[in-house]
Design a protein around this nucleic acid. Structure first.
Length: 191
DNA sequence: ATTTTCAAT
């Protein structure tokens, strides 16, 4: 039997608009958001040309193979890009910020890929009042990861690129509801 | 006003 492999193309290419509006707002109290979405973009400088890829991962909830969205990405990336010396620019748009375990795994990943830069925009801070979760974010920061709260530009970018908008124009609605709180909290954590 | 939030009685 084939080992299970996470793929950004499975089960979804893009997020449906309702899901995006429910899962992505900047909220301090985000009841019911029991999933994490990771939209990504990969740009690679490959000799004389560049290529890029994009996709959406969501955490896997199978009890026999649970996988956070970040772990799905890392596993997919290692499989997709075994060329560790090349230059990569990777951007993530996360609905929840990484847990301490994922933060550690990202730091290890960056040690493998020396020429990879990772920028993370997160909509919300996962368990931001827990010291271990704060420490995880600091480790990412110390490893050179760019960390920011998703703001209007990122929401619009995600809407345009990762959502089945079917021509519907981007509207910020409640997406930025608790942006100020979360941005201040992140500043405080990384200080 | 609150923190259940990478689900599960």
């Amino acid at each position: 039997m084939e080992p299970w492999r996470p793929s950004p193309r499975n089960p979804m290419d893009r997020i449906d608009p309702k899901t995006f509006r429910f899962q992505f707002p900047n909220l301090r109290y985000a009841s019911g958001r029991k999933l994490c979405y990771l939209c990504f973009q990969v740009e690679r400088d490959y000799f004389y040309y560049n290529d890029s890829d994009w996709g959406v991962f969501r955490n896997k909830v199978h009890p026999w193979a649970p996988c956070h969205a970040e772990q799905c990405f890392l596993s997919w990336f290692r499989d997709q890009y075994p060329y560790r010396d090349e230059d990569y620019n990777v951007t993530w748009f996360l609905s929840w910020s990484p847990c301490p375990t994922c933060a550690e795994e990202v730091v290890e990943f960056l040690e493998e890929y020396r020429n990879l830069t990772l920028s993370i925009f997160t909509s919300r801070l996962y368990y931001f009042w827990h010291p271990n979760y704060q420490e995880g974010l600091c480790k990412l920061w110390d490893a050179g990861v760019q960390l920011d709260i998703m703001s209007c530009d990122e929401f619009e970018y995600c809407w345009d690129n990762f959502v089945y908008h079917k021509g519907m124009r981007f509207q910020r609605r409640n997406l930025l509801k608790d942006y100020d709180f979360l941005a201040a909290e992140l500043q405080e954590i990384l200080r």
